[in-house]
Amino acid sequence: MDATHRDAEDASDVPVSRLARRKMRTRAALIGAAQTLIAQGRLNVPILEITQAADVGMGSFYNHFDSREQLYEAAVTDALDSYGALLDSVTASITDPAEAFATSFRLTGRLFRERPQESALLLANWNALMLSDRGLSPRALRDITAAIDDGRFRLADPELALVLAGGALFGLGTLLRERPERDDAAAVDEVAQNLLRVFGVTPARARALCEKPLPEMSSLKQSFADGVGDGSAQ
């Protein structure tokens, strides 16, 4: 290819790149606005109000999302990406993948009471989030697979284990929402312990893993709040 043709192709790429960047900014603005509304507990606002908060045109909304619900799902997923990255850092020093899985499950289960507005969105969209390639699911699948490979979990199918864990987590969230008198930490740790036993961990080891002290929750709670509240999970 000669220099003239290369220059022509390079020039034709410029408008496309600018358009792509503009679309990314618009999507980020919409998600940031949705995250702020979610954190405020305003889940049923009109789409027009969302676009005004994002400072984008009404037509731009439908270039990215088919509905308010789809936008909110994306907003929660982005926040979960941020939260998941922090979980990764918290569990990075844990060499036992079964312990890493249990720690992440126990920390996440405690967020149902700590962040009720965002948790309502998680529960409403759990079927879409269960096998998502973003957020918490791929991280849980990674830990489950590693635990199987290391002989910590005695399972043949990591995805089935992921579905069991996800169903337990979202069922637990529903229970904690409907039964506010329950001790959330005790309930979360009991479910985690039973999951570990289903996955092949001995009762004594499962109990020991779920009695380990957890990392400080404040930074995790704040990370999830920040991710949902200001769009920082973009």
Rank of each mutant, 00 (worst) to 15 (best):
G173A: 13
F101M: 13
L141N: 06
T103D: 10
D88R: 09
L86S: 02
G109H: 02
L176N: 06
N127A: 03
P180Q: 14
R115S: 05
A156T: 11
R152I: 05
A165E: 09
Q117K: 05
A128Q: 05
E178Y: 15
L136P: 01
R115W: 02
G166Y: 05
F153E: 07
E181Q: 15
D81F: 04
L160M: 10
L122M: 11
L131H: 00
R110T: 03
E178N: 15
D143R: 14
G84D: 05
A140C: 00
L129Q: 01
E178T: 15
G166A: 10
P116V: 03
L162V: 06
D149I: 09
L176D: 01
R110C: 02
A128R: 08
T95R: 13
R113P: 01
E178V: 15
R106Y: 02
L169N: 11
L136N: 01
N125P: 01
M130L: 09
S119A: 15
S119P: 07
A98E: 12
G173E: 15
E118K: 04
T108M: 13
S82L: 12
D149V: 10
R177E: 15
F153L: 09
L169E: 12
S82N: 06
G135V: 00
L136D: 02
L122F: 05
F112I: 08
D133F: 00
G135A: 00
Q117V: 04
R139L: 11
R106C: 09
A85I: 00
L129C: 01
Q117L: 04
A124F: 03
R154V: 12
T108F: 14
R139N: 03
S82V: 06
L122N: 02
R106L: 06
R142W: 08
D157G: 10
G151N: 07
R142Q: 12
E181W: 14
I94Y: 14
R134T: 00
L131N: 05
L80T: 04
G171T: 12
F170P: 10
E99K: 11
L80A: 07
E181S: 14
T145E: 07
L122K: 06
L122Y: 01
E118R: 06
G173C: 14
A161T: 05
S119Y: 04
E178F: 15
L107V: 08
A120K: 11
R115T: 08
D150K: 11
A165N: 09
G135E: 01
F153S: 07
P138S: 08
L107D: 04
R154A: 14
V90F: 10
S82H: 11
N127T: 05
T108W: 10
N127M: 01
A85Y: 01
F105C: 05
A146K: 04
L111Q: 14
F112E: 06
G135Y: 01
Y83G: 00
S137F: 05
E178P: 11
Y83N: 00
G151M: 03
L107G: 03
A100S: 14
N127C: 01
Q117A: 06
T103Y: 09
V90I: 15
S104Y: 07
I94H: 13
S137D: 06
